[in-house]
């Protein structure tokens, strides 16, 4: 199931946050989404999920806009912010409401809680969660609808080494199952060991869309390759 961007553009006043992105994110791979702060990564992800309206162009999932799906959580699992749950609600109730909203059986909640390694904390209010537990709850929510597409915005932020390792394994696993995995990150060394394919943007424009090996070719590390690509685009 492919994510397609067709000259996707977002303008805020005089600023072009996303400038005519044309690309396809393919299944069976972990696709890393890289770029400096303010490059337009989060805006792009929000437009894919129907949260922000494009100024022009389209973002499609399997040929249709996200908001056209009756049960979107069964198509796309997304982790947008570390803590998307109300602090006064327990993790389990958060997922129960989420499941109910998309006609997903309640039994699935305990399955994803176990897979995210959150079993014990599930009945605690999410306000008491650490950043890492919040990320695990977000991942559990993304897996709830068993979706063929996963979109993760900075999923390793705030995770301890065990957590980072767990997310890395999970993303590899999900891609190996044939799912489409799009993950944004600032951590280049992490992307170097996780991603199969990279999309790099700067100032809202596409700088690279190529397999990891191709981007790495001729550079000592992804960090070196990244700086060559984004040179001059970090500052406007």
């Amino acid at each position: 199931m492919v994510i397609t961007l067709e000259t996707l553009t977002k303008r805020y006043g005089a600023t072009l946050a996303v400038d005519g992105l044309d690309l396809a994110v393919r299944p069976g791979l972990v696709t890393g989404f890289l770029g400096p702060n303010g490059a337009g990564k989060s805006t792009t992800l929000r437009m894919i999920l129907g949260l922000d309206r494009p100024t022009s162009g389209r973002a499609l999932i399997d040929g249709r806009p996200y908001s056209s799906y009756a049960w979107p959580l069964r198509k796309v699992g997304a982790v947008l912010e570390a803590k998307a749950a109300h602090p006064g609600r327990t993790g389990r109730n958060h997922l129960l409401a989420m499941a109910r909203s998309n006609g997903i059986p309640a039994a699935r909640v305990d399955e994803v809680l176990a897979r995210a390694g959150l079993g014990g904390a599930a009945r605690k209010r999410t306000g008491t969660y650490s950043l890492g537990m919040g990320q695990r709850l977000g991942i559990a929510g993304a897996l709830l609808g068993d979706p063929p597409v996963l979109i993760l915005d900075e999923p390793v932020n705030g995770l301890d080494p065990d957590g980072v390792r767990w997310i890395r394994g999970l993303m590899r696993e999900l891609a190996a199952e044939g799912r489409t995995v799009l993950v944004s990150s600032h951590l280049l060394s992490e992307m170097q060991v996780t991603a199969d394919h990279l999309i790099v943007i700067g100032n809202g424009r596409l700088l690279a869309d190529a397999p990891l090996e191709q981007i790495l070719a001729g550079h000592a590390s992804l960090e070196d390759a990244y700086y060559t690509l984004t040179e001059g685009s970090a500052l406007r």
Partner: peptide
């Protein structure tokens, strides 16, 4: 308004885009 003050509105709208 709690959706905005707690920052959950985006999550809620991914569940229910309409």
């Amino acid at each position: 308004t709690g959706e905005y003050s707690a920052g959950t509105i985006r999550a809620t709208l991914t569940w229910t885009p309409l």
